[in-house]
Amino acid sequence: MRSLIPLIMSLIAGLSTVIGAFILFLSKEKNNRLITFSLAYSAGVMITVSFTDLFASAEEVLTKAHGSLKGIILSCLFLLIGSLLAYLIDEFIPDDPKGSINRYTNSNEKLYRVGLVSMIALIIHNFPEGVATFISGYQNTSLGIYVTLAIALHNIPEGITIAMPIYYSTRSKKQAFKYTLYSGLAEPLGALVAFLFLRPYISEVILAITFALVAGIMLYIAFVELIPTARIYKHNKVYLFSIFLGILTIVVSHMYSH
């Protein structure tokens, strides 16, 4: 069944959020090197997928449909709209108060609220990612794998973001896993909605627009969230190695998929 593979991909991408909780419990202390690696590697993957696959595919289709100049303009326009959507999510969805983990360590109630707000924000963030994963995989399995990999990798540190405050405020692994799982399940839910309601309307042009939008969202996440956060931990060698490894992973994978 053609739709089964992208649905499974979205489930894998979503459940990777729970890996963040596993990492938190396996490590007695906060593992900054591991977080740096996950964030930077994911950024490298996202940037490369956005430019070499998503945007390139969108530009090719829109150029065929509307001519060279208009196709390029439309591709760039939808890329910018995708970035703007990601920016608006950042602006209007409550985020972690600055320094919250350090400031609220002695206040379980406030620390718990940080985890709860993070979960709500990430549910809203993960739902359209599930739609993007399904549409990408439905059109092209290889492209769907790239998008799944990029999303899964950046979902891991997101899982840590939810699990850490919930666990340290409640001392309950069950609670931390439950809240992290809720966030992750938003991904396959988005894919299921795409499968049930959006599939009949999928066309080359609609896919091209979606790819450009998703590329903009992914670039925003990479440059505004992942890279700055990875650099905070000051593991510069790990950061540089990881981001280039992420880029090379996609470049090398092209040798086997084209």
Rank of each mutant, 00 (worst) to 15 (best):
A150W: 00
I209C: 03
E204T: 00
I202M: 10
I206P: 01
I202S: 00
H154K: 10
I35K: 05
I250T: 07
F25W: 06
I101P: 00
E29K: 14
N31Q: 05
E29P: 02
L15M: 13
I72M: 07
T48Y: 09
T148E: 02
S83F: 14
Y167G: 03
T170N: 06
K28D: 08
Y87S: 13
G184A: 13
F244V: 15
P6I: 07
F177T: 08
M1H: 12
G71I: 09
S75V: 09
P157V: 08
T229Q: 14
G190T: 11
G190C: 12
A56H: 09
H235M: 08
V193T: 12
F177L: 15
S16E: 02
A230M: 04
K237A: 13
I81L: 15
L69A: 13
Y201A: 08
S57G: 02
T170I: 03
L62A: 05
L207T: 08
A163N: 03
I19S: 08
L88G: 05
L226G: 06
E59N: 14
N108F: 03
I217L: 11
L34G: 04
V131T: 03
A194R: 07
A121N: 13
P200A: 10
H154V: 10
Y112P: 02
F127V: 11
N236W: 12
T210G: 15
S16P: 03
A152Y: 03
N236Q: 12
H125N: 12
I243H: 04
T52M: 14
L122N: 09
F25H: 05
G14W: 07
A194K: 05
I23G: 00
I8T: 11
K178F: 15
R231D: 01
I101L: 15
N32P: 00
L240A: 12
V131P: 00
L77P: 03
F134A: 05
T180S: 13
N108R: 13
M46K: 02
V117D: 04
A21H: 02
S203F: 05
S57T: 07
N31E: 04
K174P: 03
L240S: 12
E109P: 00
I160R: 01
T141Y: 06
L88R: 06
L213T: 08
I156P: 01
V238C: 10
I227A: 06
Y220R: 04
P97E: 12
L226M: 14
S169W: 01
P228C: 10
L240P: 00
N102P: 03
L189W: 02
S38F: 11
L219K: 01
N31V: 05
N155P: 04
L15K: 08
V49K: 01
L34E: 03
T141R: 11
P94V: 12
T161I: 11
F127G: 04
V224R: 04
I5M: 13
F22A: 01
I160V: 13
E59D: 12
T210E: 02
Y104K: 12
L77S: 13
M1V: 12
S136P: 06
M1Y: 10
Q175E: 14
I93N: 13
S27Q: 09
L84G: 09
A43G: 02
K70P: 01
S10M: 05
S83N: 12
I19P: 02
L80P: 06
P228Q: 11
S203P: 04
F241D: 07
G246A: 12
F55A: 09
P157L: 09
F241R: 11
I209T: 08
I250P: 06
A208I: 04
